[in-house]
Design a binder for these strands. Structure first.
Length: 224
DNA sequence: CACCAGGAATGTA
DNA sequence: TACATTCATGGT
C-alpha cells in the first residue's frame, strides 16, 4: 500500500482532524514544548491551567516566576525541565522579535533556530514548522513509526531517514502533511499501541492496520 | 503491579 | 553515528 492510499483510507475512516488542536499559534508552541513523553490530555490540562492563570501569552510566560509555572504545568510531568525550558523558550522567541520573526527565513534556518531551544528536538521543531509556520515538513512521531513499520514501509531508521521516506513519496504539500500526521495520530491512539493488542481491530478492510502482519514483540530482556 | 504517553538530553563506545 | 538511560506525572 502506498502512503497516498493509506492517507485516503485514514481520511475516510477518521475524517478531517483540524490539527493542531489549539486556540492560537502560540498555544501550539506551548503544547509542543510540554508534549514530550506525556499524554495529550496532560498537555491540555496544563494549558488550561496557564490560561486560567492568565499566562498564556508570550510576554507573560517569559516573565512568569518559576515556582508558579511549575505548579501550573505539573500535570505534564518532568517538572524540573519543562517549566524552565518553557519560560526560556519564550524569552528567546521574544528576544527575536516574536513568534513570526523567530520562524522567519528559510525553513532550514528556522529549524536550526528551533533546535537550539532546550526541550525542542526534531519532532517538536518540525511540528512547529508545519502547524505554526505552515511549512511542508513531514512530522515523524512514535505513531508514524509504528504505522510505517506495521505496513512494512520501513523498519527502524533515524528520524531523518523516516522523514525522507515520506518526502520522497509525497508532494511537498503542507496541507497534506498536516492532515496526514494528524490522521496517523488519531488512528494510532486507537490502533497503533506499542504492543499490538488489537487482534480484533475493527478496521480490517477499511484501514491500513488491517493490511499488516503482526509486528514482532520487542525484546523484553533489554527493556525497562 | 507493569507498562505507557504525539520526546529530548545526556552519556557511552 | 548508534544506542541506552533518565526524566516525572497520571492513566490503563
Amino acid at each position: 500500500m502506498t502512503p497516498r492510499e493509506a492517507f485516503g483510507r485514514l481520511l475516510r475512516r477518521h475524517g478531517p482532524q483540524h490539527w493542531w488542536p489549539a486556540r492560537t499559534r502560540f498555544e501550539i508552541v506551548v503544547g509542543a514544548l510540554l508534549m514530550a513523553q506525556t499524554s495529550w490530555a496532560r498537555v491540555e490540562e496544563s494549558i488550561r491551567n496557564l490560561r486560567r492563570a492568565g499566562l498564556l501569552r508570550l510576554e507573560d510566560l517569559a516573565a512568569a516566576d518559576l515556582p508558579r509555572l511549575r505548579r501550573l504545568v505539573r500535570p505534564a510531568g518532568l517538572h524540573r525541565a519543562k517549566p524552565r525550558r518553557l519560560r526560556e523558550a519564550c524569552r528567546r522567541i521574544r528576544a527575536a522579535g516574536g513568534l513570526d520573526a523567530f520562524l522567519a527565513g528559510d525553513p532550514g534556518a528556522a529549524r536550526r533556530r528551533l533546535l537550539r531551544l532546550e526541550g525542542v528536538g526534531e519532532e517538536s521543531a518540525d511540528s512547529i514548522l508545519l502547524y505554526v509556520a505552515s511549512r511542508p515538513v513531514f512530522v515523524v512521531d512514535a505513531y508514524t513509526r509504528r504505522l510505517g513499520e506495521r505496513l512494512g514501509w520501513f523498519r527502524g531508521g533515524t528520524y531523518a531517514e523516516v522523514q525522507r521516506w515520506f518526502r520522497e513519496r509525497l508532494p511537498a504539500d503542507a496541507r497534506l502533511f498536516n492532515e496526514f500526521h494528524a490522521l496517523i495520530v488519531a488512528h494510532g491512539k486507537r490502533h497503533c499501541r506499542p504492543r499490538p493488542r488489537c487482534p480484533g481491530c475493527p478496521l480490517l478492510d477499511s484501514c491500513p492496520h488491517g493490511q499488516t502482519q503482526v509486528y514482532p514483540a520487542r525484546d523484553s530482556s533489554k527493556g525497562r
